[in-house]
């Protein structure tokens, strides 16, 4: 094995990366989000998307949804590392459970007149995006769906005068009657 002079064992890892969506139930207390984000940056994990909001205010519970990528061993580590944090109640791998619904909301601003403007409106209708703001030369569309659908919509808007996009990131929930 060829490697530079080092006090550490330097290895290439060849396992393929996977993308997983994790739902994390946490005590809503100061610094809890910083702990979660610090864990990811400190240990070199990826964050593709992160959403957080209080979900049960009486119990001070917040739900964080994280989309991350890594080798299967790294994904397993991420879950264990999250789970051992003191204010974390539960970590559920929504991708492994295979029965999760993922949704994202995006607001998409498109500027144009004439035919492109009509085309943007027509496509928005096809994607069930709503117009939530309009001027004579622009629209703001609100669209919800999985990330793929939103990516597709944004790609279609690009040649029609896309100005900017604001996305919430992914929220996920399991199907069926049971909670996490």
């Amino acid at each position: 094995m060829n490697q530079p002079a080092s006090a550490y064992f330097i290895e290439d890892r060849h396992d393929p990366n996977e993308t997983h969506t994790l739902a994390v139930l946490v005590q809503n207390e100061p610094g809890v989000l910083a702990r979660v984000i610090g864990l990811f940056s400190g240990r070199g994990y990826n964050i593709e998307s992160l959403t957080v909001s209080e979900t049960e205010s009486q119990k001070h519970l917040s739900r964080i949804t994280i989309v991350t990528t890594g080798t299967p061993m790294v994904i397993e580590q991420i879950k264990h590392q999250l789970d051992r944090m003191i204010p974390v109640y539960r970590v559920v791998d929504m991708t492994l459970s295979g029965r999760a619904i993922e949704r994202e909301l995006a607001m998409v601003k498109v500027r144009g007149t004439g035919e492109p403007r009509v085309e943007a409106l027509r496509l928005a209708d096809a994607f069930r995006a709503r117009v939530i703001d309009a001027t004579t030369e622009s629209f703001v569309f609100e669209i919800t769906g999985n990330s793929g659908k939103i990516n597709q919509f944004i790609d279609l808007m690009r040649p029609l005068g896309l100005v900017e996009v604001s996305r919430t990131g992914v929220a996920a929930i399991g199907r069926g009657p049971e909670g996490m």
Binding site: M1, F9, E11, M73, E76, Q77, H80, D83, R84
Partner: peptide, 23 residues
């Protein structure tokens, strides 16, 4: 070297910290 670590063995690991397992 982890890829040459004890290649022929079955391993049992006792640890109180689940994040130590398979790290």
């Amino acid at each position: 070297r982890t890829d040459a670590f004890s290649p022929g063995s079955k391993k049992i690991h006792i640890d109180i910290d689940p994040s130590s397992i398979n790290k």
